[in-house]
């Protein structure tokens, strides 16, 4: 089970890790993008963190939706609508829930990832956050179906996410600003995939 407190911890941890890695993410984005990813993610999640105390009375769905609206209105760039859509779709599916079991986790993640795919039209292999999110959504669905615990599932999800990030390095970008570099986007790690991995890791650490 994932409790509401753990969801709030997840969001706080996400904010902290994105703040710690603000320069690192921007450096990755400088190589193949427009050098703003770390700053944008920090600005958005820092705002999310500042609002966490207002969420005490809300259910998990409502919390995730509030996070979505904050990200949509503060992050900007492509990451704002993409992460915003992830939390909006995830929150819509989790409406009314005070805690999440394994099945809910799988449904939540799948809804969020499908939302990102619909908004950004990226497929696995395009060198985007989908190269982390899609394999993680699949791994969570499979692990839960096989009866793994939520904690084990999330530990595995982090491994899958880290592999997804590493797998973006040799890819040629086909979506987003990096796609304009063509061959020159090779041998660089995708910043969006990296921030997605960090957020998944924060979830696993919050659940334990």
């Amino acid at each position: 089970m994932i409790t509401k407190q753990q969801v709030l911890d997840w969001l706080r941890k996400s904010s902290d890790v994105l703040e710690e890695n603000r320069q690192y993410l921007t450096k990755l984005d400088t190589a193949i993008g427009d050098a703003d990813h770390g700053n944008n993610m920090y600005r958005g999640f820092n705002k999310v963190k500042s609002q966490l105390d207002d969420h005490a009375d809300k259910d998990i769905g409502a919390i995730l939706k509030a996070v979505a609206m904050t990200l949509i209105s503060t992050v900007g760039g492509a990451s704002g609508p993409l992460y915003g859509t992830f939390f909006l779709q995830a929150g819509t599916k989790m409406a009314g829930k005070a805690e999440l079991d394994g099945d809910s986790l799988a449904v939540m993640f799948r809804a969020g990832v499908d939302g990102v795919k619909m908004r950004g039209k990226a497929q696995p292999g395009d060198k985007t956050m989908i190269d982390v999110l899609e394999p993680v959504a699949q791994a969570i669905e499979n692990d839960i179906k096989e009866g793994k615990s939520v904690s084990d599932t999330l530990h595995h999800a982090v491994e899958v996410a880290e592999k997804g990030v590493a797998d973006t390095i040799p890819l040629i970008a086909k979506k987003g600003r990096a796609s304009y570099l063509g061959e020159r986007s090779k041998d660089h790690q995708d910043p969006g995939a990296t921030s997605s991995m960090m957020i998944i890791k924060a979830l696993s650490e919050s659940v334990g």
Partner: peptide
């Protein structure tokens, strides 16, 4: 923001 799309 500089070089960053405005928000909806």
């Amino acid at each position: 923001e500089i070089f960053t799309s405005p928000t909806p």
